[in-house]
Simulated scan of single mutants.
Amino acid sequence: MAESRGFPVVDGVPPGRALLGSRIRELIEASVCAGGDADLAAAARQVEAVTAALRAAGAAPPLLLAALEGGGHLSINNPLEGPGNPLAPPLSWTHVGPAEVRADVLLGAAHEGPPGRVHGGWVAAVLDHVLGRATAAAGYPGMTASLTIEYHRGTPYAVPLTAEGRLDHRDGRKLHATGVLKAGDVVCASAKAILVHFSADRFPVPVSTSDSP
């Protein structure tokens, strides 16, 4: 296993890890929507057995990077885009470039807040992550110092969504970025953020600067 600035790097996303993340993601959705006739106690015992087996295999640091073909890295266990993390929707990047980034995302019933709508915290998390990607793609990786979200209308779940972000301008170490989350052509939420640029020598930049299929 290679390393990048001290972080473990693998050649591509391990299929087993991505498959496990996907199956647990499906389990979460199924458990949230389970009907009254389901034997939940039996299901819990099965999940407990699988959890014990995974723990018995030993623990590893959660930050695991996969080298991307076009350059940069993907954080396999990232909670927004990591295919190995069941918490991640995950975001699927359709374009990553120096002027703008764009990702498709599908949120489900497990992300529901108001009836039939995505919880606002998940909307904010998606936009925060996209703005971080945008500044990194422009060559200035940073951490969020402030984030302002405007909720224009409820964001539906189980509907394909598009998240877009861009770096508007830089003021020294301060990075000003904006983004939107859309359902079709309808803007559900928009965001403005100030991020603080940090040295790429300290952290890997998990982003490709080319279109991503």
Rank of each mutant, 00 (worst) to 15 (best):
V101Q: 02
A52R: 15
L87R: 11
P160R: 03
A158S: 15
E100P: 00
H176Q: 01
A60I: 10
A42H: 09
W93F: 14
G82K: 02
G6K: 09
W93A: 07
S92K: 08
M143Y: 14
L65P: 00
V186G: 05
T155F: 03
Q46N: 12
H197N: 08
G36L: 12
G172V: 05
Y140M: 06
A145I: 07
F203V: 08
L80T: 07
R17G: 04
R45P: 06
Y140D: 02
L161V: 09
G72E: 08
D201K: 09
L106Q: 08
R45G: 15
D168K: 03
K182T: 14
R23E: 11
L167R: 00
L40K: 13
S31T: 14
H129A: 03
P98L: 01
T94G: 08
I149F: 03
A138N: 00
G108Q: 11
A136V: 04
L64Q: 09
A56G: 15
T155L: 07
G179Q: 05
L64A: 03
V186S: 13
W93N: 00
L27M: 14
V130G: 00
R55K: 15
W93S: 01
V123L: 04
G84D: 06
A145R: 11
L87M: 15
V123G: 03
L175N: 00
D104M: 12
A43H: 13
G116H: 13
R17L: 15
R166I: 01
A158C: 14
R173M: 08
L161D: 07
L167T: 00
G113P: 07
P141W: 01
A109T: 14
E69I: 00
G179E: 02
A137K: 01
V180N: 05
V186M: 12
G70C: 08
V196I: 12
